Simulated assay, not measured.
Amino acid sequence: MTTSTSLSPVNRRIVWGVRALLALAFAAAGIAKLAGAPQMVQVFDAIGVGQWFRYLTGAIELTGVVLLLKPAAGFLGGLMLAVTMICGAATHLFVIGGNPAPAMVLAVMSAFVAWQLRPVSPFSAAS
């Protein structure tokens, strides 16, 4: 399989712009989680699973940022971050309360990147 290279120059710039915004947002969130920012500690206390989950989530977010910014791995980064934010929105809805909208917006943006960079089968071009 190859990655989708059929993006126009304008679409490619849009996707890179969204990737950059996501990288900034997730890098800040991941670093805050790993650094033990009081707000993050409080949120993960409310989840009730333990602080190990905060470290895991922060590591997943930073790994997603690295993948997102690596041209050959942008699809995987977008997919990883979209799934993470879907789980985050569900956590807000069903466990801790609060506003799930920021997580949902980040999920949609991450899914957009994953969709735009999705692998394309070499057989689909032959049709």
Rank of each mutant, 00 (worst) to 15 (best):
S4V: 04
S8I: 08
P9W: 07
V10S: 13
R12I: 00
R12A: 15
R13V: 07
I14K: 06
V15T: 12
W16E: 08
V18I: 15
R19I: 07
R19M: 05
A20P: 01
L21F: 14
L22F: 11
L24C: 10
A25N: 10
F26C: 04
A29L: 11
A29V: 03
G30N: 10
G30C: 10
K33L: 12
K33Q: 15
L34S: 06
L34H: 06
L34K: 05
A35M: 09
A35W: 09
A35D: 13
G36E: 04
G36A: 11
A37V: 10
P38D: 09
Q39I: 08
Q39W: 05
V41D: 08
V41T: 13
Q42T: 12
Q42H: 09
V43Y: 05
V43D: 13
D45H: 11
A46F: 00
A46W: 00
A46H: 08
I47P: 00
V49C: 00
G50N: 04
G50E: 06
G50Y: 05
Q51F: 00
Q51K: 04
Q51E: 13
Q51V: 01
W52E: 11
W52Q: 13
F53A: 13
R54V: 01
R54E: 05
L56D: 07
T57A: 15
G58M: 07
A59N: 02
A59L: 14
I60H: 01
I60F: 11
I60Y: 05
I60A: 15
E61T: 01
T63K: 01
T63P: 01
V66H: 03
L67H: 03
L67K: 02
L67F: 14
L68F: 10
K70E: 02
K70H: 13
P71K: 12
P71W: 09
A72W: 06
A72S: 15
A72G: 07
A73H: 12
L76D: 08
G78V: 07
L81Q: 08
L81K: 09
L81M: 14
A82C: 13
V83T: 12
V83L: 15
T84H: 12
I86T: 10
C87R: 01
C87E: 03
C87W: 02
G88F: 06
A90S: 11
T91S: 12
H92V: 05
L93T: 07
L93W: 10
F94W: 13
F94S: 10
V95K: 10
V95I: 15
I96D: 05
I96S: 06
G97C: 04
G98D: 03
P100T: 08
P100D: 10
A101M: 15
P102I: 09
A103Q: 05
A103I: 01
M104E: 14
L106G: 06
L106H: 01
A107V: 02
A107M: 13
V108P: 02
V108D: 02
M109K: 00
S110W: 07
A111E: 08
A111I: 07
A111L: 15
F112Q: 04
F112R: 02
A114P: 09
A114T: 11
A114V: 06
A114M: 11
W115A: 15
W115K: 03
R118P: 03
P119Q: 11
P119K: 08
V120P: 04
S121W: 07
S121E: 10
P122N: 12
F123P: 00
F123G: 02
F123H: 10
S124V: 14
A125C: 00
A125P: 00
A125M: 11
A126E: 14
